[in-house]
């Protein structure tokens, strides 16, 4: 008799286990293959890929330096970092201020307003795409950091998740702080926010990932090389160098590195976030 492992649903025999492992490893290889191909092709001259021969002595980093020369990748990365970091920080501040009021203050119209916020989750972003483009143009923000950052700051989902979390923090903490003369602003900053790190971390990695990888909005509101983000720069790169696979793969590796680093550092938070937002549907 085999001991029942805590999360096992069936008592698997050795052959079944072997089969499962084989399937899972094969699946993993399929998932990883695109990354492997990307790295291999980026490390050899294009000729190596065309001939499918990758002699070790020809390994080179030249593709990376050439990629940086033909397109301003450094600038794209800088733009991405500025936009993703600023948008993430400001979005969490703005959402948490609103969530604080929704969760812990009383005011006229609170619950109806919150319902309206929730209802906006139903609206596909494509509907507001054209008006927002016009608003950005009217504000004189076309092709600027403001265009990339400001519309990303208002998140109904973020406000909702923060409000739900704030509601679980005991109200006595606020009461005690108020007795000591603390203002609401101080309670928000010194009591509620520090208590809410788990959900803030989740929102931060998600918002960072979403702004880093966003495609449609930057495509619409940027036009110059100095404002482009990595995904947009990469997609133009495909148009210009559609057969220079070594350069395209080097560019892809560069584009992926920052977000993969964030993933490996904050992996647990990512998974928690998916289950947190995923379980929101229950």
């Amino acid at each position: 008799m085999q001991a029942l492992s805590p999360r096992s649903t069936t008592r698997l025999g050795q052959p079944a286990r072997g089969l499962l492992y084989t399937a899972l490893v094969l699946g993993s290889l399929i998932m990883l293959a695109p990354f492997l191909v990307m790295v291999v092709v980026s490390l050899w001259p294009n000729q190596a890929f065309l001939e499918r021969r990758f002699p070790l002595e020809q390994i080179t980093l030249a593709n990376f330096s050439e990629t940086f020369q033909v397109i301003p990748f450094g600038r794209y990365i800088l733009n991405n970092a500025i936009v993703a970091v600023t948008a993430t920080v400001l979005q969490i501040l703005i959402s948490s201020l609103a969530a604080f009021a929704f969760a812990r203050l009383r005011f006229w119209g609170r619950d109806s307003l919150f319902l309206i916020y929730l209802a906006t989750l139903m609206i596909p972003s494509q509907i507001t795409l054209i008006p927002n483009f016009l608003i950005i143009r009217a504000l004189g923000w076309y092709d600027s950091y403001q265009a990339l950052i400001v519309p990303a700051l208002f998140s109904a989902l973020g406000t909702f998740l923060l409000r739900q979390y704030f509601k679980t923090i005991p109200l006595e903490l606020d009461e005690a702080a108020r007795m000591d003369g603390a203002s609401s602003l101080r309670i928000w900053w010194q009591i509620i926010l520090p208590q809410s790190w788990p959900v803030i971390a989740v929102l931060a990695v998600f918002s960072f990932q979403a702004t880093w990888n966003d495609f449609l909005w930057p495509l619409v509101v940027t036009s110059s090389d100095s404002m482009r983000t990595i995904p947009i720069g990469l997609s133009y790169f495909v148009g210009q160098y559609s057969t220079a696979w070594n350069l395209l793969m080097a560019g892809s590796v560069i584009a992926l590195l920052p977000v993969l680093i964030v993933y490996f550092v904050a992996q647990k938070t990512f998974i928690q976030g998916v289950t947190l937002t995923g379980m929101g549907g229950r």
Binding site: F35, M38, L248, S252, V253, A255, Y263, Q267
Partner: peptide, 21 residues
Amino acid sequence: MIYFLPVVTTLVAGAIVFRLL
């Protein structure tokens, strides 16, 4: 971790590799 990896990757980079593959 491996199966979740593509979820966080930049789609454009993934699409370029798929063009090659």
